[in-house]
Amino acid sequence: MALLSIQNLWVSFGGLVALHGVSMDVEEGRIFSIIGPNGAGKTTIFNCISGIYKPTKGKVIFRDREITGKKSHYSAGMGIARTFQNIELFGHLTTIDNLLLGRHIHMKSGVFSGAFFFGKSFPAAREECHHREVVERIIEFLEIEAYRNSLVSSLPYGIRKLVELGRALAMEPTLLLLDEPTAGMNQEEKRDMMFWIRDIRDDFKVTIIMVEHDMNLVMDVSDEIMALNFGVKLVQGTPEQVRNDPQVLEAYLGRD
């Protein structure tokens, strides 16, 4: 069975129906892209997968377990990590601390062990050191060493996007949801990001679902693409199939 399976998903906000019975399957190890014009419902799908929205109807099944309507922290614990369209970092924390929060689900220390440790050999201290090392490797991978100890609110936009990506990677997820990872970047940065996305899939053995507006990049990097318009699924297939689909052309270029 597919790693993630979405079945007949309906989401409505009051009168507005954001998703009209969308279904999709994502196989393990794929880079799966969701495209569509503004307001198509792409972020809404992400929010349903990561448990921020509760769908009106339909199912989300991850690793053969239904996670529909479960809380966000539950899906995080199941191995789903995500980034946000409008960067959601912990602004008053440093880069390292932000990434360490990604390790939260892998750490165990509680109130007492966290409060009372006096030396390296205490479990909480050992755990802390171990995870700091893991985080350090991610910092090296993304080449953000220079910003290790800076407060993230003081970092430039592009770096904050990287920190957010690093934080998601720190969770060592099975499924990584990237909401417009290259938004606001220049061409060169976008290209770097695309290389990274491939590297991440290969190095971290993670399945990626990505929302992205830059068509060239999407076509370049994706294994599979789903096109969405006004909450309706238009087509799903390989980049080649989607590129030549008349409905997609119409949604993007308009009727002529």
């Binding site: 995500r82 912990f90 008053h92 924390l93 934080r167």
Partner: peptide, 14 residues
Amino acid sequence: VAIRDSEIAAEAMG
């Protein structure tokens, strides 16, 4: 501290 800075992101971190 994560909860203080962003509840949504804190939840997303598990």
